[in-house]
Every structure is written in C-alpha cells, then in structure tokens.
C-alpha cells in the first residue's frame, strides 16, 4: 500500500514531526511504500540544515535525511511556506527538495492513504 504523509509542524516545538517520522519508519518496516512526505506550514522547518540540537537530543532533520538516503523517500517542502519562513535551497538539508503545493495534491491522488500530522 502507498502512503502519503503531511507534516504541518516544525521540529522540537511539537511532537507531530516525531510521530510522523516514527510512523514512516513503521510503514517501511511493514513493507509498505511511502509515496511522499510533504512538509507544510511550520513543518518546512524540518528541512533546515542549520539546526544544531544538543548532543544528547535526537537530530530530527538528520533523521529525515537518513530516511531519504536509505529508503529513497521523497521529502518535499512547500515552496510558498518555505520562502515565508526562510527555508531556501542554500539551507536545505540533504534529501529534501522544494516544490509546489501541487505535490501535496498529487500525493492525495496517487497514494492509497494520506495521513496528516500537525497541531
């Protein structure tokens, strides 16, 4: 089964991004496919490679990048929401790409399920 994921909150502020990540890992572990993870609203902040959490904390951004690297998960950041919040290609973490809202709608059409994580 193909899953689409929508992440609407930024890292560290709200649990939404952690839950979404752990959900994605479980999706893959069960042999399902992730069509796309789309980051919207403050969720775009998950893509900033400038984040530097303390050593004893989880690295949320790096975790997403690793998911993209190891499983080829498509991580898409909404361009309009990203520009509003200062996320651009020059500070984008590996594995993420910036694109339009059409990518979210496409995920809704193509995926069998779309799950929203937010506040």
């Amino acid at each position: 089964m193909k899953f689409g994921i929508l992440v609407n909150e930024g890292p560290y502020q709200h649990q939404a991004s952690d839950t979404a990540y752990l959900f994605c890992k479980a999706v893959l572990a069960q042999g399902h496919e992730i069509f796309r993870v789309f980051f919207y609203h403050d969720g775009v902040n998950n893509a900033s490679r400038l984040t530097e959490p303390p050593q004893d904390d989880r690295n949320i951004v790096a975790r997403w990048s690793k998911l993209a690297e190891e499983h080829g998960v498509d991580l898409v950041v909404c361009v309009a929401a990203a520009l509003r919040r200062g996320i651009k290609d020059e500070n984008l973490a590996p594995g993420f790409r910036i694109s339009g809202l059409g990518q979210l709608v496409e995920a809704g059409i193509q995926a069998d399920r779309l799950v929203t994580f937010g506040d």
Partner: peptide, 20 residues
C-alpha cells in the same frame, strides 16, 4: 498499539482524519 499497529489501523480504514 505501537507504531506498527498505527500503520495497520490506517491501512485497514479507507480514510483517516486527524482532528487537529
């Protein structure tokens, strides 16, 4: 349920809604 159970719940329902 654990996260795997969460995935199963999503899979076996046609739609899901998050009451944000």
């Amino acid at each position: 349920v654990d996260y795997a159970g969460f995935v199963d719940l999503v899979a076996r329902n046609k739609t899901c809604q998050s009451w944000l």
